[in-house]
Nucleic acid binder design. Structure first.
Lengths: 213, 213
DNA sequence: TAGATTGTTAATCGATTAACAATC
DNA sequence: TAGATTGTTAATCGATTAACAATC
């Protein structure tokens, strides 16, 4: 029963629409058009309509999108219905930055705990979140029903952490360590490699310099 | 004279190849095949050959890729020839995490300074990098010939920071603030929005849960 | 020569864009 | 009715994959 699912690039844009709508709602807007969203986000209006068409029919022809209706639709599509918890493994600078990061709350997401094996870090509190020893991770995940995990450890430790997360029942993982990991079939795994992003950026610098020279 | 340029998805993978080759070289390997790289990185060998074909002809039919030759080719393509400096604006947790992050050095990249306007942060040293007041940013960029900037400030401040970077002569910007920014024509601007990445991940969790239910 | 592996061409797949009928 | 704007279809564009001749 494999429903087609939302294409990856579209899915990546839905959270942007969501955040825009939250802000529009706070600003008192009741209705917005794909054109207006496109202007604000720097995307073609046709692309936004196409993306939203993968959800239910949420707009009104001739009128636009009701902010509340579209927010509900996006919440439903993304599975942000209830407050969602996430854990971070690795309580170094990056892990601490994530725990302190306010940006997750718009989406009703919250880092609930950090895990690390460094005795110097265990017992710390970061932005109100405890740093716990790794061996408590499975029980915490189980007890709190956590489904999302973020890996913020060095590359050499990352695969072991991913394995532990999978064993603990985590359903989706965002890996920030500079290593390509694997996870069993049913678990969704994505990589974000900031150093590689920066290295790719250097290409455009060189390219630009050439055009001028 | 617009040379075609490397397609975006391919470009994003080149740094992965580069890092793999650095490690292969350290392990004493002299030659690697696209098949071996594919195995290690979880990518199809055909895709790797295609990506590398956008550079010069760097492999040897029937033999494989010489590690040193391919490293040189990638360095040349990505513009990693000389040590490259980058600045970070925003010396909060995320900015400090970036300054402390060891992963940039494989690519010969280095965060040289942080900038912030918080008097409590100015004067600090983070992993050997000074935190300087914003007004020193343009002179620093000019003096050190910096071309890359990373934005790690709150969303409300991000556009002003981008404008300041552009004015200072930065050529490419990686924006980590949860806001869509604009920059003038000649400047390359990319967005990485970790909260949105996590929100998109939640979709797969819900999807998985449905399949089982 | 036989086996291995690249670089490239062609086929396939999927996403973006444009256009417009449906609807308010 | 005239003007606005969606949702969808079709056209275009671009990336991935497969296949294989060229080469070692």
């Amino acid at each position: 029963m494999d429903r087609p699912g939302i294409p990856r690039p579209s899915l990546g844009r839905l959270p942007l629409y969501y955040r825009f709508l939250v802000q529009a709602g706070e600003a008192g807007r009741a209705v917005v058009s794909s054109d207006e969203m496109g202007q604000a986000l720097g995307l073609p209006a046709a692309q936004i309509r196409k993306d939203l068409s993968y959800l239910r029919e949420l707009g009104r022809r001739g009128v636009g999108y009701d902010v509340g209706v579209l927010l509900d639709g996006l919440r439903e599509a993304l599975g942000l219905g209830h407050q969602k918890g996430a854990i971070v493994v690795g309580a170094g600078h990056l892990g601490q930055a994530l725990a302190s990061y306010a940006g997750f709350s718009v989406y009703g997401m919250r880092i609930v705990a950090l895990f690390d094996d460094d005795p110097a870090k265990i017992g710390m509190w970061v932005a109100g979140r405890p740093v716990l020893p790794m061996h408590l991770m499975p029980a915490t995940v189980l007890r709190l029903g956590i489904q999302l995990g973020i890996i913020a450890v060095p590359a050499w430790a990352a695969q072991a952490v991913a394995d532990a997360m999978v064993a603990a029942g985590i359903m989706a993982i965002l890996n920030l360590a500079p290593a390509r990991l694997s996870a069993s079939q049913g678990v969704w795994l994505e990589h974000e490699d900031l150093a590689s992003r920066l290295a790719a950026l250097a290409y455009h610098v060189r390219r630009r310099a050439e055009t001028e020279g």
